[in-house]
Simulated scan of single mutants.
Amino acid sequence: MASYILPIALVALFMFSTALQTTSIKDLDFYHLVLMWPGSYCKQTSAGCCIPKTGGEPELDFFVKGLLPYSNDGKALTQCGMSPFYLDEISDLNNDLNSYWPNIKCPSSESRHLWKNTWKTYGVCSGLSEHDYFKKALDLRSKIDLLSIFKKHGIISTDYADYSLAEIKQVINREFGATTAISCSKNQWDETQVYEIYLCVDREARNIIPCPVLPNFTCASRVVFGSFTYDMLKNVSSLADNPIRMRIR
């Protein structure tokens, strides 16, 4: 009798996991595509940011933070199942993942741990294969090309100016016809800086759409969009790196 207990338990667990995942996928209405500005990440603490153990230096651009599944009532869909993470499934995406979805936390670590956590928390709720989940997020980041849009409108990453938060949101709205949410953090000089930008994406993870629901963040009316350079990755940021800072309004 005892020999049947483990197989039965495994079958029950599998059925429960499958039912949970199916229910969550049915509830999926849209995604939040979250893009992170790494320059702000590097300046949040004296720990700074580091080059990952594998993959080399990332691009000096917005990183993907996540493609987060949501329902129209504002419910985040997380940990919907127990689908394992296989690094081999996304091997053809390695260059883009290392460039635009790296882990730059200090001390240096391997980005694959970040990808695994993202998949097991959010990806399993998407109804997509592991490969398609990461590819669609990377494709969206490339299609949006937020850094180029900012530059076109005179929003340049620099440590010597600040910008109107309302104007940044207006730029995004004009380009995509959609609202956005911007989360902020404080840098080492106690300045409010652009940290993450939330855009809404349709259920097929193909196009930017007007947001059914957006998170509500508190930011100052004027924000820093600080520089991001390779020197910041090679040498941990500190106050001594840039002791004189002047604002141009």
Rank of each mutant, 00 (worst) to 15 (best):
I208F: 00
R206D: 00
Q193W: 08
L199M: 09
L214E: 11
C211W: 12
P212M: 13
I209S: 13
D202N: 13
E204R: 13
E191H: 08
P212H: 09
E191D: 10
R206Q: 11
E191G: 08
Q188W: 00
P210K: 15
I197K: 01
P210T: 13
Q188R: 12
N187C: 00
I208K: 02
N207S: 14
T192G: 00
D190I: 06
E191K: 14
F217W: 10
E204C: 05
I197Y: 08
Y195V: 06
P215A: 03
N216R: 13
V213S: 13
R206E: 14
E191L: 11
N187A: 09
A205P: 06
R203E: 09
K186D: 05
N207F: 03
F217E: 10
R203P: 03
P210D: 14
V194P: 01
T218K: 13
E196G: 04
P215C: 12
C200T: 02
D190A: 15
V194N: 07
Y198H: 09
T218S: 15
T192F: 00
T192W: 02
N216H: 11
Y198R: 01
V213L: 15
V213A: 15
I197T: 10
Y198E: 05
S185A: 14
N187K: 05
R206I: 03
F217A: 12
D202E: 08
N207Q: 12
I197W: 00
V194L: 01
N207V: 09
V213M: 14
T218V: 07
W189K: 08
I208M: 08
E204I: 05
L199N: 02
Q193M: 03
L199A: 05
R203W: 06
A205F: 05
F217V: 09
E191I: 05
K186F: 02
D190F: 15
V213F: 15
N207R: 14
S185D: 11
F217G: 09
S185Q: 14
N216Q: 11
I197N: 01
E196D: 00
V213I: 15
F217T: 10
P215D: 12
D190S: 14
T218L: 11
N207Y: 08
V201E: 02
N207W: 09
P215K: 09
D190C: 11
E196Q: 11
C211Q: 15
V201H: 06
I197S: 02
A205R: 01
I209C: 11
C211Y: 12
Y195P: 02
C200I: 07
T218E: 08
V213D: 12
L214S: 15
E191W: 09
F217N: 10
V213G: 12
Y195L: 04
I209T: 12
Y198F: 05
E196C: 03
P215F: 04
Q193E: 07
D190L: 14
V213P: 10
E191Y: 10
C200H: 04
D202K: 04
